[in-house]
Each structure stands twice: as C-alpha cells, then as structure tokens.
Computed example of a mutant assay.
Amino acid sequence: MSDSVFTVVDLGGTTLRIARYDTATREVGDVRRVPTAGLAGHPGTSAAGLQSKVVEQLCSLAADAVRRHGSTALGVAFAGPVTADGRVLAAPTVWSGGGEPVPLRLLLEERLGVPVVVVNDLTAAVWRYVEGPDQQPFCLITVSSGIGCKVYRAGEVLLDADGHGGELGHWTCDPSPDAPLCDCGGRGHLGGIASGRGTLAAARRAAHADPDGYARSALAQAAPDPEGLDNPAFAAAVRGGDPFATTVLRGGLAHLASAVTAVFTSIGVRRYVLMGGFALALGPHCVRLLGEELERLGCFGLDAAEIRRMVVLGAPDDDHGLVGAGRLLAARGAARTAVTAA
C-alpha cells in the first residue's frame, strides 16, 4: 500500500499512550502519555462509571490526534481480551472485574469517521516482530507484573473469535493449596510465580527462610529489610551475578521453561521473544538462565545448541503496542477493520 499515517494507541491500566505511525519509516513519533482515566485514578468508581470515563477519554484524545496527524486509520492496543469484531470483553486493570462488554471499535468509528482496529495489547505487540509474509512462527512472551503470551503463525496471531489464547500467565503450574496468589484470585498461576511481582514475593519468602543467606547477598545491601526490596534492586543483583538472587530467579524460570516446553512440544514454535519491564531489566541474564532451564528440561527433538537459540530479547523500550498496532494496520490495509485483525 502507499505510504500512510495512522494514529495508534496503547491503553493500559495506568497509562494511555497515543502516537503517530508512519508507514514509510515503520516507526512512531509524537508519542504522548497521559494517566488512564480508569481504576488507578478513580478508585471506588463503579465499573460502568469507569468504562464511561475511559471510553470518553480515548475518543476525545483519538479524535484530536487523528486530526493532528492527518491519519487514515486508528489502531488501539488494549489491556484486556478483545473479540474479532473489536469488542472489549473485560479490563481488570482498567475498569476492574465488572462491566458489560464494550463495542469499542464501533464507538470509535462512529466518533472518528475512520477505520479502526482494536486488539489486545500483546496481540498488537506481536506485529512489531512480523517482518513480512514469510515470517516464521514465534511466540511473544511478556514478563512484567504478570505474564502473557501470543503465538504468531501463518500470518495470524492464534486466537479464537472471543479473544481466547495467550493467557500463559494463568496456567496453573503449582497446584498446592498454599501456592502464591495470582492477581485474578487463583493460586499457583505462572504469572503469580515467575513474573516480576511473583519473583519479588519469592525473594522475600527466601529471605525470611534463610536470613543469613540474604544478609550475605547484594539484596541485603539494597534493602536490609526484605520487605523493602524492589524489582530494580533484584534485577541489579541478578545482573551482578548475586547467587542468592539468581537462585530465586531460577525457581520461577523453571516454571516458565516448562510452559515454553509445552508450547514447543504442542505446536512446534522454535522462537520465543521476551519483552516486559522485568525481563528487559534482567537483560541477557534472563535469556541465558531461561535457556539453561530449557536445556535442563529438554525440548523433544532439539539438541542443546538449538535450544539455546530459541529465546531472544525484544526491543528495549515500551513502544511495542504502538509500533505493533501501526504495523498491523499496514499489514491488513487501512481500509480493513478489526473483523480480520483481532
């Protein structure tokens, strides 16, 4: 298609980011950030009230940006499950666990008068790593406060019409009754164990179980009281080779490696791209340690060298949803809408 300009949005529970996407450069510019008018900023407001605030905020900002950019289409990466026709089914971090499904694509198209695509934020992020029609299958995994994934294969992100798929963070990897809690309320989910939040909780538990070991670690220098430990200090300790922190991290990565092995053995995906604040803060150490756990478990049919090449780090920024939404629009054609894109 000829060069075009799109407006793209990444709407999360804390921050709404909006930008200009240029199909000629395949990059974003004019990136603006505002607090999302949702749960974080309006505690105590009903789900319906939050939905109204967020939708109005998005429509208003998008309308201004479309005019400012001279856009021919809008792409929205949304933090929640989205159906193939652009309905948001839920948004726990945006408007809590309640509320009815929101026909966001239709609402935006009526307001803006341009084609709109609305997809899950991680679905959008996948498209940042799609280089063309011959792109080989891969799995994008985000490791931040939670864990999620999406698989790209044969020109599509693998989802059903209701947006199901890619919820690796809610796989129950620890069935014990006292397993760590997940944000969804369940226990023993991968996201509650191997995410940044889960790893930090594991580090605190390990510190209380082995106070002498903690006292000798770099973690204690950053936070003498383990309850004061944070993820930047933990990641710095791992990058510095601290044995105590590295052992804690391996415990969570063993579960993540098991999940990756299950994806590989079930559908044969050989490339795994890691993104998310916690994974990127750990950097190459996360890739190396996860690769070692994968090698320890074994991936049926692959030798050690092949296993070590499976995992790579994503781009070191937070523009995945914005760039991905723009590239998705470009790949599908601005005249086509979310019916074929989610």
Rank of each mutant, 00 (worst) to 15 (best):
V8Y: 10
V8N: 08
V8G: 09
V8D: 10
V9P: 01
V9C: 12
V9D: 01
D10V: 04
D10W: 04
L11I: 08
L11R: 00
L11S: 04
G13F: 08
G13T: 08
T14F: 00
T15M: 05
T15C: 01
T15E: 02
T15Y: 02
T15S: 06
L16V: 05
L16R: 02
R17V: 00
I18T: 05
I18D: 06
I18R: 03
I18G: 02
A19V: 07
A19H: 09
A19Y: 06
A19I: 06
R20V: 06
R20A: 11
R20S: 14
Y21H: 15
Y21R: 10
Y21G: 11
Y21N: 11
Y21M: 11
D22A: 12
D22V: 13
D22Q: 11
D22R: 13
T23P: 11
T23E: 13
T23L: 13
T23A: 12
T23M: 12
A24Y: 03
A24E: 13
A24K: 13
T25E: 14
T25K: 12
T25V: 14
T25W: 09
E27N: 14
E27D: 15
E27I: 10
V28K: 10
V28S: 10
V28E: 10
V28T: 15
V28A: 11
G29T: 15
D30H: 11
D30W: 07
D30F: 04
D30E: 15
V31P: 02
V31G: 02
V31R: 08
R32P: 00
R32T: 13
R32W: 01
R32V: 11
R32F: 02
R32N: 03
R33Y: 02
V34S: 04
V34A: 01
V34W: 03
V34G: 02
P35E: 02
T36D: 01
T36W: 01
T36V: 03
A37M: 04
G38N: 05
G38E: 08
G38W: 00
L39R: 12
L39T: 14
L39C: 09
L39I: 12
L39A: 14
A40M: 07
A40G: 07
A40P: 03
A40T: 11
A40Y: 00
A40Q: 10
G41S: 03
G41D: 06
G41I: 05
G41R: 09
G41P: 03
H42L: 04
H42P: 00
P43Q: 07
P43A: 07
G44A: 08
G44Q: 07
G44C: 08
G44D: 08
T45R: 14
T45Y: 01
T45N: 01
T45K: 09
S46T: 15
S46H: 07
S46W: 08
S46Y: 03
A47E: 05
A47D: 15
A47R: 02
A47Y: 02
A48W: 02
A48V: 14
A48E: 15
G49V: 03
L50I: 03
Q51M: 10
Q51S: 08
S52K: 15
S52T: 15
S52E: 15
S52H: 15
K53W: 03
K53V: 01
V54W: 00
V54L: 09
V54M: 12
V55K: 07
V55F: 08
E56K: 13
